[in-house]
Amino acid sequence: MRPFVGTEALAAGTVNRYQLATRYTSMHRNVYMPRDVEPTANDRAVAAWLWSGRQATAAGLSAAALHGCKWIDPRLPAELIHTSRHRTTGIVLHSDRLADDEFCRLRSIGVTTPARTAFDLGRKPGLTEAVIRIDALVQATGLKPADMALLADRHAGARGIRQLRRAMALADDGAESPQETRTRLVLTAAGLRPTHTQIEVFDPFGSFVGRLDMGWRQYLVGVEYDGIQHWTDPAQRTRDVDRVAELEALGWRIVRVSSDMLRRRPHVVVDRTLAALRVAGFHPPSVKTIANSR
């Protein structure tokens, strides 16, 4: 059982008062969840909407969660567009006015459209985080750049609009994790924006060999972000070694990126990618130096 209204559950007989008091925890006034269930970002969005009397519109991160975005920190507060002056812990209330084409319903819940959600998320402080969130939203919904641009033009004087436009220009529908987005942004900042993402590679017989996070198909250079399981899981490590060997046999040069490299040594990502591109015959007109992170 996910978030529910306590008085409704009591009236329906699905719980009694003793069960409500001992087996469930109050998320907001009259809104409950099972004690042994850790709430997700989606749960927080639904709970906040129920708290509003089903009157509010989920916005920002809550809208993104309801649209199916991954990687949203479940500890962050829910966000609603609501006229209520009553405040409650765990919910951020916005008073924005929405045009008719800026909200919709998902499973009966009022929620900002993907385009409006991107408009809101892209203006939150922090360019990298804004791009990560827009990438995730595009992945989840198929949101088109033209739809985002329409909202940006409509609200041209809104706070944060400059960052939003930068985030839109940097977004990519091929990012499948925040770290892939960060890797792409490190390369882009150095003047090495990958020309392709999620590159599928096949052998001469048409058999699928693997999919690369990003790279330059025409130069057979790929860049892969490897999560911790790629380094600590022996079975995954073996698969990676075999896969890279197959890719290299087909002429690909693979730059592998770890979390430590991305966080503390981004210049290494750039240097290794640039070296691979130069060997492949590509010489970028200018490459910016990326400082070592401290």
Rank of each mutant, 00 (worst) to 15 (best):
R116C: 03
E176Y: 12
N16R: 04
T89C: 07
H283G: 11
D100H: 14
I72M: 03
D173W: 08
T7Y: 08
Q163G: 07
R29I: 09
I91L: 07
P34E: 05
R278D: 07
S293K: 08
L106P: 11
P74A: 07
V46W: 06
T112L: 06
Q198G: 02
T197G: 13
Q179M: 12
H155A: 13
M148P: 00
G142P: 09
T57V: 14
D213G: 00
N42D: 14
D172V: 00
Y18G: 14
R17Y: 15
H230V: 00
D213R: 00
A47K: 11
E38G: 06
R256Q: 08
H86V: 14
A158C: 10
L106Q: 13
L262G: 01
K70N: 12
T195Y: 14
R154W: 09
G126W: 04
R182K: 10
L137P: 04
D120F: 02
D203S: 02
A140F: 03
Q139H: 15
D213C: 03
K144G: 06
T117V: 01
M33I: 08
R182E: 07
S95C: 09
D120R: 02
R278L: 10
G191N: 11
T83M: 02
L76G: 00
Q218E: 14
P285Y: 11
H267Q: 15
A190N: 06
R75L: 08
D135L: 12
M148C: 08
I109H: 01
Q55M: 09
A41R: 00
I254A: 10
G110E: 15
H196T: 11
A171S: 07
F202M: 02
S286R: 15
P178K: 07
H196Q: 14
S52N: 01
I254D: 01
I132C: 08
L80R: 00
A280L: 01
G222P: 03
T232E: 13
P74R: 02
R123N: 03
E180A: 06
T273R: 04
V131A: 00
L20W: 05
L143E: 08
G122L: 03
S84G: 04
A249F: 14
H94F: 10
P125L: 08
A65D: 00
Q163I: 09
A156Y: 13
R272E: 04
P285C: 09
R85M: 09
I132L: 04
S259E: 15
Y219W: 15
G227N: 02
P178A: 03
L274D: 05
R133W: 05
L127H: 08
A63T: 07
A146H: 14
D271Y: 08
T88H: 04
A115W: 05
F103V: 07
D233A: 02
D203I: 06
E176K: 12
A11D: 11
T141M: 05
T14C: 14
H28T: 02
I199H: 02
R75Y: 08
A58Y: 06
R256A: 06
D101R: 03
G222E: 03
S108V: 13
R87E: 06
D100M: 13
T40K: 10
G60Y: 08
